[in-house]
């Protein structure tokens, strides 16, 4: 029979071994991330210059650029943010503050959870069947913005709800005691206090939307666009116009995908350069969101 010292030292050895295995797995995961970033940077960074940012796609790899792609991405993101943030926040507020406990609320909650798990390409099929052909909106910026907004809606809803749920009930009651009704409480207390959580969720959602490729391919984003959508700003009254909403478009991930799928290595370098821009945007947005959440936790 083993002495208890032996058992204890055996146990300690098992634990130490497991810590090593755990850290090893962690190291592999991190090395993958590092390899991915380094590979993209080594291939793509030398290609990244001013011309690359301001040139249109071209048949010749050396003259091709991502002008139409990043302009398209920016415009589509404006539409997505304008739709997803208000709708998601409103839905989150409803579910936390207003919703009665009944079967209708249950159905809404089940749907939000379920939609978060639907593959993004299915949203693309929805947009193709409903928006592009059903409603005749065409393969335009507005459709891309709309479908990406639907895609990230669950993210915004969930983070809004988490933000609201962490607010103390006593503050709500204080607001009611001062004579505020539910709407005033929502607008003047709930929303301002939940702002960091809403911001985190919105940024995370948008960073997901920037990188999404599949649903926009399905609705027919073009990979070869040698012009920009009409400018949203004009010189005459009313100074802004919305013609760009109905313009065909290209996007950064689409452009990158197109370059990857070509056989020539020169285009792969272009793909890496576009990937650097894309990755930088999403990583920056994600880090910013994580930072806000971290600070939020510290305050609480």
């Amino acid at each position: 029979m083993k002495s208890y010292q032996q058992i204890i030292s055996g146990n300690k050895r098992t634990d130490r071994t497991f810590v090593v295995i755990g850290l090893l797995v962690l190291l592999i995961a991190m090395l993958t991330l590092v390899a991915l970033i380094l590979d993209l940077a080594i291939q793509g960074l030398p290609r990244l210059d001013w011309d690359f940012m301001t040139n249109f796609p071209s048949r010749r790899a050396a003259r091709a650029g991502i002008m139409s792609a990043w302009v398209g991405t920016t415009l589509v993101m404006i539409v997505t943010a304008a739709l997803a943030i208000p709708l998601g926040v409103a839905a989150g507020v409803y579910l936390e503050e207003y919703a009665p406990k009944n079967w209708i609320t249950d159905i809404i909650e089940i749907n939000v959870t379920n939609l978060a798990g639907v593959p993004s390409i299915i949203y693309g099929l929805l947009a193709l069947g409903l928006f592009v052909y059903g409603l005749g909106l065409g393969q335009t910026i507005q459709v891309a913005g709309l479908v990406l907004a639907l895609l990230i809606l669950p993210i915004v809803i969930v983070s809004t709800r988490e933000g609201i749920r962490s607010l103390p009930q006593s503050m709500r009651e204080g607001s009611y005691a001062l004579g505020a009704d539910q709407w005033q409480t929502t607008v003047r207390y709930i929303l301002p206090s939940a702002r960091p959580a809403i911001l985190t969720g919105s940024i995370m959602g948008l960073s997901r939307a920037i990188g999404e490729t599949a649903p926009v391919i399905t609705i027919g984003a073009l990979t070869f666009i040698a012009f920009l959508p009409p400018s949203p700003v004009q010189e005459s009254v009313p100074f802004i116009n919305f013609d760009w909403l109905e313009s065909p478009f290209s996007l950064l991930p689409i452009q990158m995908f197109n370059w990857i799928s070509r056989p020539q290595a020169d285009f792969h370098v272009n793909a890496a350069a576009a990937g650097v821009v894309l990755l930088a945007m999403t990583l920056l947005m994600n880090s910013f969101a994580i930072y806000i959440r971290y600070r939020l936790r510290k305050v609480l």
Binding site: L40, G211, I260, G275, L278
Partner: peptide, 14 residues
Amino acid sequence: ELLGGVPTVVYGYF
């Protein structure tokens, strides 16, 4: 979380 935030098209390239 950053690992999960990398766009899938970049993973495809990788």
